[in-house]
Computed example of a mutant assay.
Amino acid sequence: MLLNPHHSHISTTTMDTKMCRVLGHAIAVLFLSTSLASAACNKDDLKALLSFNSSFPPRTLYNWIDTEDCCSWDGIYCDDGTGRVTSLLFSNDDFNDFDPIDLVGRMPPSVGDLSELVDIRFSTLPNLVGPLPRQLSKLKKLKTINIYNTNLSGPIPSFLSQLPALERLDMSASQFTGSIPPSLGSLAKLRYVDLSRNGLTGSVPPSLFSRLDRSALATLNLRQNKLAGAVPRSFASVAFGGIDLHENRLTGDARFLFGKSKPATSIDLAQNKLSFDLTDVEYPVGNLDYLDVSHNEIHGSISEQIKEATKLSYLDMSYNMLCGRIPSGGSFGNISSRDFSHNKCLCGTPLPPCKN
C-alpha cells in the first residue's frame, strides 16, 4: 500500500516535533538538576570559619580543610540553595552525628561573621570557657541558642536582646552568674528559656515573655540557681506549657501559675520558700502530667478538683504545712505516702486515716 506523500510529510514532521520535545525535556531536567545541586560554601562564611578554626589548638577540627567545601565539614550545615552556613552545631551528646570534638578555649568572635546563622549549639564541651562574645549580637536571623553543659561563664549578656528572631535560649548547666537581664523581655518571639543549673542571683524579671503572643506556649526553666524574691505576677497571663523554678530562694504567692484552663503539662516549684494557701487553687486539668510543690511553706488543704487532672503521673506535696483529707480516687490510687509526708496534718489514703 502506497503512503500518501502529504501524509508521510505530516508524520515525519510530527516525529521531529516529538523528538525535539523529548530532547528539550531532557535538557530542562539536566538544567533543573544542576540548579538544585547544593551550592558551594559562601566565601565570606568560609573566611569566618577558618578564623573560627584558628582560635583553637591545631587539629581540633581536623576535617576543616580550606580547599574543600565547608558545607561538608563536621558541625556545619548550609542552605542547599545558597551555600550559606545556617547552623553551627558542636555537641558531644549521645545523639551527636559526628566524631567527638573537644573545643578548648573561648568561643571565637568570628562566629558573629556568619550572618545567616539560624541555629547555634555548643553542648557537653567542658573545656569551652569564658564569656559569650559580643559579636553574637550581629546575628539578626538567629532563632536558637543552645549552650548546655559547658564552662562558659560571666553574666547572661543583655546584648542577646538585640537578636529579634530569637525563639529558643538554652544556656543551662554552665557557669553563668549574675542576674537575668530584663531586656530579654523585649524579644517578641522568645518562647523557650532554659537558664537552669547555673549560679544566677537576683530576681526573676517580670518582663520575661511580656511581648510574646498570649496564644503561644512558653517554657521557662530556672532550676537550681540562687534566684530570690517573688515569682512575677505578670506570669499569670503567660501560657506556660511548662515552668520549673525548682531549688531557688523564691518567696511569696504563686497561685496565679495555676488555673483550670491553663495549658501547663509540668509545674515544678519545689525547694523554695513559697508561702500561699493551696485550698482554692484550681489545677490545669487538661494536660497536667507533673506537679511538684514540695519543700515550701504552703498551707491550706488539697482541693478535690485535682482529681480532674486525669493525666497526672507525678505529684509531690511533701514538706509543707498542709492539712485536711487527701482526695481519693482517680490518679491518686498510684500516689505514695512519701508524696504527702512531713506536712502539718494531712490524713487519709495513702496516709493514716482521718480521725473524724
Rank of each mutant, 00 (worst) to 15 (best):
F340K: 00
C20Q: 13
E297M: 07
S261Q: 02
W64P: 03
D79N: 15
N225D: 09
I120F: 08
E116M: 12
S161V: 08
N127I: 07
F276Q: 01
D213S: 15
K47M: 11
L132I: 08
G24Y: 11
S234C: 04
G202Q: 09
T34M: 14
S137D: 13
S179I: 12
A188M: 05
A37W: 06
G202D: 07
L346M: 11
S313I: 07
I145Q: 04
I10R: 13
D119I: 08
Y314L: 00
D292Y: 01
L312Q: 01
R134G: 11
L257S: 04
A39M: 10
K307F: 06
Y314S: 01
M15L: 13
L32C: 15
S261V: 00
S331V: 08
G154S: 05
L200Y: 07
W64D: 03
D339N: 10
S341D: 14
H295L: 11
M19N: 12
E167H: 07
G252D: 09
Q224I: 10
D280A: 08
K311H: 13
L322F: 02
L88N: 10
D94S: 12
P155K: 03
S11Y: 11
G242A: 15
G300E: 08
K262Y: 00
Y314Q: 00
L30T: 13
Q135H: 09
D79E: 14
P350S: 11
K226G: 07
L50V: 10
K47N: 13
I145A: 00
S313N: 10
I306S: 02
S87Q: 15
G24A: 15
P155T: 11
L2P: 12
V118I: 14
N63M: 06
S54K: 14
F340L: 05
K141F: 12
D289T: 01
S174F: 01
S123P: 05
M321W: 02
